[in-house]
Amino acid sequence: MPKPTLEDIVKGVQKLPQLPAAALRVSNIIDKPDTSADMLAEIIRLDASLTGQILKLCNSAAYGFTRKISTVKEAVAILGYGTLKSMVYTVIAKFALDKPVEGYGLKHGDLWINSVTCAVYAKHLAKRIKHPNPELPYTAALLRDIGMLVLGEHVGPYYHEIEKLTLKEKIDFVQAEGHVLGFNHCIVGARVAEKWNLPLVLVNTIKHHHAPSRLPGHSTPAELQIVTLVHLADMMTRMVGYGSGSDGLMYSLDVKALQKIGIEANHAYVESLIAELVELGPIIRDLVDSMKSAGEE
């Protein structure tokens, strides 16, 4: 059987993941420039399930509000558009990512937990450097590995060859994917993100999060910062060990990219970072638990 081509794989992806109708309507307008918080809130409000999901998230430890939020109107007033948007993406990500991905050794729930952990880590890292919009690295990290979901259905017969090549040629897993298949899960993910009409910053993060130094030369410092924050969050997630697949730690840290955004990844920095991130465990678990549907509890 011939190897699948990138075009074949992307063609086989549906326009959008199989989302409930309200989530689909929201995802269609979420990044349009003329969409307001009120418009978003109105669509959410009309769907009991989506309303329930958003309110559960609002009231989880991840958002830390001192009083209970009971309506979408309240959520919009308190959270603002940026945070509401990232919550909607969290709900969409749960539908899309909470599946097993056998090709990469990911059991049911692994990719979802990995993605949400990386998202929470990315937001923490963004706040650490006083990024003006920490919700953006959060969302980018959440969706960074959608390519694994898609390529996971095809990579199985080639997986061992890819892994052997990483050690033989001393290259990262994603480079070895490229050598064996002609493309890697990041490129697949970026093409899928384009198909889903995701914003360019998310497409670029999905494509370059394992090697931010390879961002195109015309990329802005702001774009480099987002992609590099997600890269660092990704590496930390692998090290702490939340839901990584069989590709595990077969990646290197892009020290040059970190230096470009003012982070000197030395001994003390990495260890103090791990020490902080591990303490976010209860918040992540609360967020994951708050998103469980009735059948999963």
Binding site: T166, K170, I171, D172, M235, R238, M239, G248, L249, M250, Y251, S252, L253, D254, V255, K256, A265, N266, H267, V270, E271, I274
Partner: peptide, 17 residues
């Protein structure tokens, strides 16, 4: 006690955690 790759020289011993 697994370890990230260090093929490109990125990280060095700091990632030998």
């Amino acid at each position: 006690g697994a370890q990230l790759f260090n093929f490109g020289g990125g990280g060095g011993n700091i990632l030998n955690i």
